[in-house]
Structure formats: structure tokens, C-alpha cells
Simulated scan of single mutants.
Amino acid sequence: MYKVVMKPLRISLFGGGTDYPSWFELHSGIVLGGPINKSIYWEYSEDSKELDIIKKVSSFLGITVEDCLTLRNSKFLSKGLGASSASISSLIETVSNKVLSRNDLISKVTYFEQEYLKKNAGNQDQILVNSNKFKVLRFSKDNVFEDDEEIPRDTIHTLNAKMYIVESKKKRDGELKEINFEDNAESLGAIKEIAEEALVILKDKNFNESEFHRLLNLSWKYKKKILTDSDVKFFEEEISEIFKMGASSVKLLGAGGGGYYVTFFDRKPRPSSFNEVIKVEFLE
């Protein structure tokens, strides 16, 4: 019988897209985000539905998995919350026959996703789902590291009191298209600059909420240029509805194609046509 290893999902507020090696090896990158109080994990089951990924992880680790395992909270997969990296992190720790350090685990998950599976994946999720607090991640050709800049606890409390995720009605249909980093250099450069501006605001003990919301909303202006036109029209209609619910700011999570929005409300969200509106918090 294997141990249960729970891994948190993650929300990145700023800088998503600049954590892809094809970008940061030329331009550097930054991501501001952290693990949240929703998790994913594997447990014993006589009726496993995830045999393919279990076999791939077993082959990657060079071990044999005897028992059947089932992924719990799998509804969060492909929803922009880092669930793929969280599930693989959990699975590797669950079946591994030796104790892995945090850095070893992050390295294994990153290599497994990017090289073994050949997935179009960045480098933020593997770190954030194996963290216990909000992080400032910096990426360059020579290094990927966690900056030691601390965000004041009162600021995290303010965000946590108002943060929700709203599930888009659009479902992802397979793998997302790869970002053309050369064609989207202007947009990604702007996303990086916005993240640097947001970091200054988040670090300030006198947290400027209105400026935070302005920057989070501004990031959509550039993110949507990376997506397909048909998706953008759909998401803009949903974002408009979320603002009518009373949101101060809205951001589509993940690489596009559907999933969740992270939103901030000063008051309880008004009723809407969305299936799920979930209160979430960053871990501290």
C-alpha cells in the first residue's frame, strides 16, 4: 500500500508565459504566484482509470507499480491550475522507493514533462505545486531560481479574503497550440514588465489594491494577443459577465483554451450562469 501524497494546485497572478525555456533563455522571465488550498493526490483503488500515466511514470523511474492507483480531484486537470505538474509530483512521491529532496522532485517532474513526455510546458508549475507559500520566480538562460523577496503577510491576507476561481464554460479539446515566441515577443515583453510593476506593488507595505487590479486586468490585454481570435471572443464575453458579478479584476489562468479565471471580489459574487465559483486562498 502506498502513502497518500497531497499536492496543492497553484495560481500565478503575473508573468505566465515568460517561464517557458524558449522565451527566458533569450529574454529572462518572472512569475508571481503560489500554491492554493485546493489539492490533488493519488490513492489505492481497484479500478484505476489512469493506467497510461502510471505506466509512463513507472518506466521513467525504472520501477514496477503493483497496486492500482486513482487520481483524486482530477476535475482540476487541464484547467490552468498546474494540476498536471501537481499530479505527476504526487505520483512520483507516492510510488518512489526512495525519499526525494524538494529540488530533486522539481527536477524530475520538469524533465518528465518537458523531455520524456515532450509536453509544451513552462517551468513555474513544477516549483509552485511543491511550495508552501507565495513565490517570486525568476528565469534566465543560466538559472531558474526562487527569489527571496517576501510579500508582506497582510497583503497575502488581503488577496486571500477576496480571491475566487470561476470555471470557464469552454472545455479544452486536446493539447494547446505552442506559443510562437518570436511572433509574440512584444506581448510577452509587456507581460514581463507588468509582472515587475506588480512585484513593486505587492512588496509595498502600503498595498495599493486599485493599482494591483489595474495591472491584473491589463495583463489580459497582452495575453489575449497570444490566443486564437475565436477563443478571445468567447473569453471576453465571459470576462464581461464576471465583472457584472462584481469583480474588481479578472485573469484567465493557464495557457488558454479553457479552465478557470482567478478573480477578486470586494463582496460576495452576484449570481451568474457559471457552474463553479470557488473561494480559494494562497497557502501561508
Score class of each variant (00 low, 15 high):
S90A: 13
S85W: 03
R10W: 03
N123I: 05
F76D: 10
I88Q: 04
V57T: 10
V57I: 13
E276Q: 15
S140W: 08
S89L: 06
K3L: 00
E209R: 08
K225C: 12
F234Y: 12
D47Q: 11
E211K: 12
E186L: 14
I191T: 06
L199M: 08
S45N: 13
V277K: 06
K38F: 13
K49E: 06
S22K: 14
L188M: 05
E50H: 07
S140M: 10
S248T: 11
I156Q: 00
S89D: 05
I30A: 00
I36M: 11
K244R: 12
T64K: 12
F14T: 05
S131P: 09
N160G: 11
H27C: 12
L215C: 07
G29A: 11
G256T: 07
L199K: 10
P8D: 08
K244E: 10
Q126V: 10
D154A: 15
V65E: 08
E182Q: 12
L69I: 01
I11C: 09
S168G: 12
F60N: 00
G122E: 07
V129S: 06
G33T: 09
D142A: 02
D125Y: 00
S96H: 02
H157L: 13
P8Y: 08
L188D: 01
R172T: 00
G62M: 05
K244P: 02
S96L: 03
S248D: 12
K251G: 06
L26R: 11
G259F: 05
T158W: 05
I63F: 04
V250F: 04
K169A: 09
H157Y: 11
S85N: 01
E43W: 06
V65H: 05
G254A: 00
E146Y: 10
K75Y: 12
K244M: 05
I54A: 05
S39M: 07
N120P: 04
T158C: 08
K75F: 08
F112A: 13
K233D: 12
T263V: 15
N103M: 02
E66F: 14
V65D: 01
K205Q: 13
I36T: 11
L105D: 07
V31H: 00
E146G: 11
G122M: 08
S240E: 15
K268D: 10
E50Y: 09
K244I: 02
L202F: 08
G80Y: 04
R10A: 10
S131F: 02
T70R: 10
D125K: 00
S45D: 11
A86N: 01
A185N: 10
T64C: 11
G258A: 06
I179M: 13
L91R: 03
I278G: 08
N73M: 09
L199H: 09
I30R: 04
L32W: 02
G257T: 02
L69N: 04
